[in-house]
Design a protein around this nucleic acid. Sequence first.
RNA 1: GGGCUAGUAGCUCAGCUGGCUAGAGCACACGACUGAUAAUCGUGAGGUCGAAGGUUCAAGUCCUUCCUGGCCCA
Length: 924
Amino acid sequence: MAYKETLNLPSTDFPMRGNLPQREPEIMQRWVELDLDRLLSEPDPDKPNFTLHDGPPYANGNIHIGHALNKILKDIVIKSKRMQGFYAPYVPGWDCHGLPIELKVDQKLGKKKREMSKAEVRKECRAYAREWVEIQSDEFRRLGIFGDWQHPYLTMTPGYEATTARELARFAERDGLYKGRKPIHWCSSCVTALAEAEVEYEDHTSPSIYVKFPYLDELPEGFTELAEKPLAFVIWTTTPWTIPANLAVCLNPELAYVAIDTGDEILVMAEGLYAKVLAELNITDFKVIKTFQADVFEKRACRHPLYDRASLLVLGDYVTLEAGTGCVHTAPGHGQDDYLTGLRYGLEIYNPVDDYGRYRKDLEFFGGEKVPAVNPQVSAKLAEVGALLNEDKVTHSYPHCWRCKKPIIFRATEQWFISMEANQLRQKALNHINDVQWIPPWGRNRIYNMIENRPDWCISRQRSWGVPITVFYCNKCDEALADGKVMHHVADLFEATGSDIWFEKDTKDLMPEGTVCPSCGYDDFRKEMDILDVWFDSGVSHAAVVEQNDHLKTPADLYLEGSDQHRGWFHSSLLAAVGTRDAAPYKAVLTHGFVLDEKGRPMSKSVGNVVAPEKVIKQYGAEILRLWVATQDYRNDTRVGDAILKQVSEAYRRIRNTARYILGNIHDFDPATDSVADKDLLEIDRWALSRLEELATRVRKAYEAYEFHVLHHALHNFCAVDMSAFYLDVLKDRLYTSPAAGHARRSAQTAMYRILDTLTRMMAPVLSFTAEEIWGFLPGEREASVHLAGFPNFEAGLIDVDLEKKYERILAVRSDVAKVLEQARTEKTIGHSLDARVELAADGNLGAFLTSEAEQLASLFIVSQVEICDNLDDSSAGENLSELKIRVSKADGEKCSRCWNYATTVGKSEDHPEICRRCIQAIA
RNA sequence: GGGCUAGUAGCUCAGCUGGCUAGAGCACACGACUGAUAAUCGUGAGGUCGAAGGUUCAAGUCCUUCCUGGCCCA
């Protein structure tokens, strides 16, 4: 027992268990004391700038796992860039305006809201957003995200709002801004526009009518047989009140249509629907006289059944065979598809219904009537003119107002748009897309297709919580004044006090003195009460943040968000920048997938499969969440759940224990005085450093390519396979039993020290807490924080390809030996591998190789003796190396009670009868 | 319905321009050690590469169709 005292056993205070939920806050405290966020935000003119511009999360609710994934990825990018030698500041931001917050505040205020002014309600919204910014800020910091948290950007601060207004002014200056119409959900009872989130779908009984639209154009070539009788296209609708607004009938160019002779007339509908329809109409005597594709009728005209105007035949692929006739009644002012079709064909976005849901007075037949109550009258009128084929009732899901619970309508209203064609915005945006690096590359096609096909950007919202659209209307001629100069004037006012003044000040105080209406010369105006789409807010962040912050560089090097942002922020940012600057706001765009549960389903409260970051942090620690991010190939969707997190924490423990073991074995090592020069290192130590350098190279490349899962697997594999299972295991004998300050032990310590130093730096961007913890235990002079240090430089001299080849061969032999040792263990010949004596034999090349390496094989196999024989009869053949013969037997001699190797020298010494000669020399 | 995208062992990932019995690690089973010990080491068992066709001397890798997911639209 006394001999144990002469060993150099590992010793460290570095705890085996991470205890992350407790320890992480302590490490964060250290970062605060070091003032790391500020130090890392300080510009460093000697370093190239790398700007990752943060996409602002919405300032409402606690963060979810998707936020965690996004922010951790950004943090890994920022930290790795910094360690690669960049100055990489990170300015986090929040999206603060918009409907969800307004609705929450509405709820909170309840009846009180009615007595409050718009400006007062906005103050409540502001306070509400601010509250969540603080909460989320803490939550993000708890994840170990570094950034300028003292100076985040908020889309609701005066400066930001001023920029938003200015960017809008720029669009106006370039004639990119115009007023048009678009159908929106409208509640005639509440007299208000509704957002999709305020619409509830419930069952509702509506009329169901079939209506004939008489064809009155020339027939296409080859359709003469249809000229013999009156010809009509048959539509089906459940909203008769929209018939007065009908401007077109839409057909699907992919579907076959038929003309049916019913005796007195010829009716047209889709081939796949006519049988069903005719049955409903009780028409039994008919004949299909022609089948055709609809495209020949494109842009030919029917006559409106009630009014003396055309209803154009148009094409649209959204027409289906699910219901109706295949000929779709199209009122561009009253439906989404209808609207888009209307735009494509240049139809008027016609809406004869006022804010209270009444037809305009001048509408023939129905003026002043309320919709949809007017439905029976419309049907009656259609019957009267002979256009109604059938009337019935149908129950279907229909939108209702969430507040008053009444059915709502779809109705075109005046809205502000950014034109996709003015200044060739669309084409320019498409061109710029091609100059951006999309990671993964398919992102390019995704956003390209969207920009190519999207309609003009509707930027107005009939809401309170947002940046006002800073235009005025002449009180005399009603002309809109969207003048760049005037708008810039307003923006300057916002700069000082924020956009609330729009709702607080009188109109004349918001306009430059002497402004008159350009069309009538009058000088009395009213302000627009609509606000801007929040996508416009965040879309101008390049102007409000990147351009205005001296620490950041324009255009940003990288935007990094979920793949839904091809439609969202990447999209609006691109349009906002190209429209005003003719440049993309980013050089590269990186996207990640969505976080799903372990079965690959989206997370939802109702399914009960939500994994909350907060809970993971409490149970495992933020570090495990960070490592989880690095285990997943985030370019696809990622999965998370208990089993996966458990697996991640296992991987974590392996890395942590490897570090701990090394720390324990270098506790008496001072790199400044005890290091062994490269050329004097023992062979296997040189091998270990060669492997390390290859790992570092792979890891460096993975960081550069943003392939963090590659780096994690490489790191983990290195710890588990190269280190733990081989190198560190083999090293034990040398470390424990040789003289503490002798060359052999110092050589091992030198290698181990360098390995851990490199590993720690390499893991720091991912395992930010643990790397910091290890850093504090590493000996030698070093920066106060690993996050102030850099990645190690590439040392080509450490890579020794020949040596690695040699060890590859040794490891193959070792693996074969291990199998035979296992057999011996099963047969109870040995327990520990040191109980064994191994005999090897092989012909030719391998035999010569083994003979040349004979000296160190016992140590590498962790057995007591290895002997190379000429021939072995009763032996096992290798599995890796079939020419290899292996025999295992009980080792010769006695077990040394100090080093546990068997040796014939044990018992030969009178002074030390229990230990071997090697140990006697070691303790001498 | 459209645009984009994914589907290799229970899990997380490799598998380059088609070419040796499809690889790691983890988890699992069994065993060893008790000087990394709520650790460590060894061995083993896991895959018709989503399915079906096709091209080829040869396909996880190329082509077609289908199935099942995801994001965004409609």
